[in-house]
Design a protein around this nucleic acid. Structure first.
Length: 281
DNA sequence: AGTGTCGCCTGAATGC
DNA sequence: TGCATTCAGGCGACAC
């Protein structure tokens, strides 16, 4: 379940390992994932140099020296394995795309559930492609303020859970960090989105930035030795306040959890939300 | 246009 | 032990 912090961590690892590298060979082991791989992907990538790797929403964007961009979305279960030069590559189950580089580095895109996607886009398409066109603001940018969020939520009848999951409102949040941010801001996932404004909007934006930055920091510390061994990127240990903690006390809890039953799980739009009904109004 | 629901896919966890 | 069922969820497709 890679969300913004996990994708950011993967991008940083890829950038460090692959910036300036030239793609030597590409192999695909099936037709595609959620969508077919771009036609003649291996041919189109061979010989191109990677200028840098960056993130937009939950997409990894590797800019190539011909103006094209290799775009990877990890979906639900996608993982990137980076292997240092000299590492003997052993194919794992669900390794769907392999890239080899001029210095002997290798990258494997592994995705058990195949919800991931691979695109090859021109620079201009990073604005116009359906996957990018409607994306909302990056939550960690300065321009993402309480005022901005309140504008985006104005008039919305959906609940806050759905609103923050909507990539058109803000880009990069998923099920985990929506629960975490709403808890930190003291806002119920059931609140109608259009009612969030002023101080609450400010608090929510601060909470979003705080949970994302903390998670990125946690991910960064796991990156240290990523080029050793198999170089798995994308998942790291991170302690959550409410996510997947049904029935447990929330941080700073003073309740009698036996009576209050602690953190509550509800289903919204077919997805679990975790929250504290006593702290989140 | 905005909102809500479904299905894609596999593996881990759970139930009988 | 083994088989079946449930659940996880990003996101596009679709219905209303």
């Amino acid at each position: 379940m890679p969300e913004l912090p996990e994708v950011e961590t993967v991008c940083r690892g890829m950038d460090k390992a692959l910036r300036g590298r030239t793609i030597a060979e590409v192999h695909t082991h099936r037709e595609g994932l959620r969508a077919p791989f771009p036609a003649k992907l291996a041919e189109k990538l061979a010989g191109k140099q990677i200028i840098h790797c960056r993130r937009r929403a939950k997409y990894i964007v590797a800019e190539l020296d011909n103006g094209q961009n290799l775009v990877i979305h990890l979906g639900m279960s996608g993982q990137i394995f980076l292997m240092a030069p000299g590492h003997i590559y052993k194919q794992r189950k669900h390794d769907h795309l392999i890239m080899k580089f001029d210095d002997g580095s290798q990258l494997a895109f592994n995705d058990a559930r195949r919800f991931g996607i691979v695109l090859l886009l021109d620079k201009s398409e990073l604005e116009t492609h359906p996957s990018f066109r409607d994306l909302g603001p990056e939550p960690l940018e300065r321009s993402f303020t309480g005022k901005k969020l309140a504008q985006l939520l104005a008039g919305k009848k959906t609940d806050m859970k759905a609103a923050l999951m909507d990539q058109r409102v803000v880009a990069g949040l998923g099920n985990i960090y929506v629960s975490e941010a709403l808890f930190l801001a003291g806002i119920s996932p059931k609140r109608k989105a259009g009612t969030i404004k002023g101080g609450e909007a400010d608090a929510l934006v601060s909470a979003v930035k705080k949970v994302l930055n903390a998670a990125i920091k946690a991910g960064g510390s796991t990156l240290k030795d990523y080029r050793q061994a198999d170089g798995e990127l994308g998942y790291f240990q991170h302690r959550f306040a409410v996510y997947d903690r049904e029935g447990k006390p929330c941080p700073g809890c003073t309740c009698d959890v036996k009576k209050t039953r602690g953190i509550t799980r509800i289903v919204q739009g077919g997805r679990s939300s975790f929250y504290c009904p006593r702290k989140q109004a």
